[in-house]
Amino acid sequence: MSKIVVGVDLGGTNIAGVLIDEKGELKGSKVWPTEAEYGPEHILRRIIELIRTLLEENGFTLNQLQGVGVGVPGLVNTREGRSIISHNLPGWKDIAVAQKIHEEINAPVFIENDVRMAAWGEKLLGAGQDKEDIVCLTLGTGIGSGIFIQGKMFKGRKESAGEIGHMTVEKDGLRCNCGNYGCLELYASGRGIARRAKEALANHTSSLILKLVNGDINQITAATVCTAAKQGDELALKVIKETALYLGIGLANVANLLNPQRIILGGGVMQAGELLLEPTREVVYSRALPLNREVEIVPAKLGEWAGAIGGAMLAKMQFIEGRSSLEWVW
Rank of each mutant, 00 (worst) to 15 (best):
A98S: 15
Q99Y: 14
N88G: 12
F60A: 13
G81T: 00
G69K: 00
G28A: 11
G250P: 00
A161E: 09
N259A: 15
M117N: 05
M167Y: 07
M167R: 01
L212K: 11
L302F: 10
K316T: 04
M153H: 12
I101Q: 04
A197H: 02
A96S: 10
P299K: 04
E57Q: 13
I264H: 04
G69E: 10
F60M: 09
V135Y: 10
K158E: 02
N256Y: 01
L326N: 01
G267C: 10
A252I: 07
R191G: 03
A308S: 11
R46G: 08
L291D: 08
A118F: 14
P260S: 11
V169C: 10
S160R: 13
G248D: 02
A236D: 02
L258K: 04
K3Y: 12
R157N: 01
Y285V: 15
C178H: 04
C178Y: 07
A161P: 08
Q99I: 02
G24C: 07
N88P: 04
D9W: 01
G156Y: 03
R281C: 10
S324Y: 07
L201G: 07
L124G: 09
E37W: 03
V8P: 09
V169P: 05
L184E: 04
E132K: 10
M270G: 02
A300L: 12
E37R: 15
N218W: 01
N256G: 13
N292L: 11
G322V: 03
A228H: 06
I20K: 12
T224D: 02
W330R: 14
L75C: 01
E112L: 08
D130S: 13
A229C: 14
D9H: 09
A119P: 01
L251R: 12
R281Y: 04
E199P: 01
P108D: 09
I48C: 07
A98H: 12
F148D: 06
K198E: 01
D172F: 15
L247F: 11
I264C: 05
L174E: 03
L26N: 13
E41V: 15
G311Q: 02
V97P: 02
